[in-house]
């Protein structure tokens, strides 16, 4: 295990955090859309709140996928082929979502269809990413070649499903926090969003406790030493809890705290992803038979390749951050 391998393990965690913290809230808005968007004006505000930025947010996923391929190809190959149908559902979700966001206002007569596509296209990824992560944490049945040998239904086990719900509820809290920040002051939509922000953050904590109980009772004892509850994981777990408590502490009435709401929800993403990676380290995809586990040591690309990737990242990541600052500044403030 080289220094580059560890560096890229951390960088992939960072990319996933970037994806979760950013696309998480626009996926959350998409799932809340049919429930909060009761009239055309509220629907428009919800769409406009994510309109200019959702696509850029989604690119974090493509970057994380590409980086996983480049840095740990066996992990990319095993997870994407092993979770084949789930990944395809995520993919179809992302496709119909992108199309629905763009065509909603230019394809008159089918608004209802586009609204449904926006909702389903947001729900599928929001739910399934967590399910996939839950399966990775619990360990997969892999063979010596690194291929998943289980069935599709086996992926829908209780721990994976609770992880899916955890991810979804967190994104709902993020989505509500974003809407509270972007919806016009004094309108009912902002009030509803700020109430939901608090509600979902509270549910998020409850789901987290349930997931933790299942983890300690059923997952950790069967992990054959592939998982570790270390100091770093505990610190990240604490960060997650602080994030959710921070969201709850924003209350409902003070719009000045709306920025704090979305930032706290983002801190929760850092906590969840950080905790997962800290527990997995040095595994990337633990196997039920630990001899077949995909680890940093046996999956990392060559130092030559990782050096090239590091240089690419050193040039690219600052640029990406600058773009984000520019665009989020240009579109700051509430929707009119």
């Amino acid at each position: 295990m080289t220094g580059f391998g560890i560096l890229w393990f951390i960088l992939i965690a960072v990319l996933i955090i970037g994806y979760f913290a950013l696309d998480g809230f626009d996926l959350g808005v998409g799932v809340l859309y049919p429930f909060l968007g009761k009239n055309e004006r509220d629907k428009r505000i919800m769409r406009d709140s994510v309109g200019p930025i959702w696509d850029g947010n989604e690119v974090w996923l493509l970057t994380a996928g590409g980086a996983l391929f480049a840095a740990f190809a066996p992990a990319y190959a095993t997870s994407f082929s092993g979770f084949y149908l789930a990944i395809m559902l995520v993919l179809f979700g992302l496709i119909i979502r992108a199309i629905s966001v763009e065509y909603r206002s230019h394809e008159p007569g089918h608004e209802k269809l586009w609204d449904v596509c926006f909702f389903i296209g947001s729900l599928l990824p929001a739910l399934l990413f967590g399910v996939a992560v839950g399966n990775v944490i619990a360990g997969l049945p892999l063979n010596a070649h690194g291929d998943y040998t289980g069935t599709f239904l086996a992926l829908l086990n209780p721990f994976a499903l609770i992880c899916g719900v955890l991810g979804l509820v967190h994104m709902l809290a993020q989505g509500a926090a974003w809407l509270a920040l972007k919806a016009p002051l004094g309108e009912a939509l902002r009030g509803k969003a700020s109430r939901l922000r608090r509600l979902f953050a509270a549910i998020d904590l409850v789901v987290f406790v349930v997931a933790a109980i299942i983890f300690f009772v059923a997952v950790l004892p069967n992990s054959n030493g592939t998982l570790s509850v270390n100091v770093l994981a505990v610190i990240f777990a604490a960060l997650f809890i602080i994030g959710d408590v921070g969201v709850i502490a924003c209350g409902m009435d003070d719009p000045k705290r709306d920025v704090l709401g979305i930032v706290s929800a983002g801190a929760g993403c850092v906590g969840l992803v950080g905790m997962t990676f800290a527990s997995l380290f040095p595994n990337i995809i633990p196997a039920i038979n630990p001899a077949y586990s995909i680890t940093i040591a046996n999956a990392a690309s060559s130092d030559t390749a990782l050096l090239a990737m590091t240089i690419i990242a050193c040039i690219g990541v600052p640029l990406v951050l600058i773009y984000h600052v520019i665009v989020y500044r240009a579109f700051r403030g509430r929707i009119k």
């Binding site: 690119v59 970057t63 980086a67 480049a70 690309s301 390749a305 690419i312 990406v320």
Partner: peptide, 9 residues
Amino acid sequence: GAPLAAEAL
């Protein structure tokens, strides 16, 4: 993988 990651970035 590197060109794909670079393309995204």
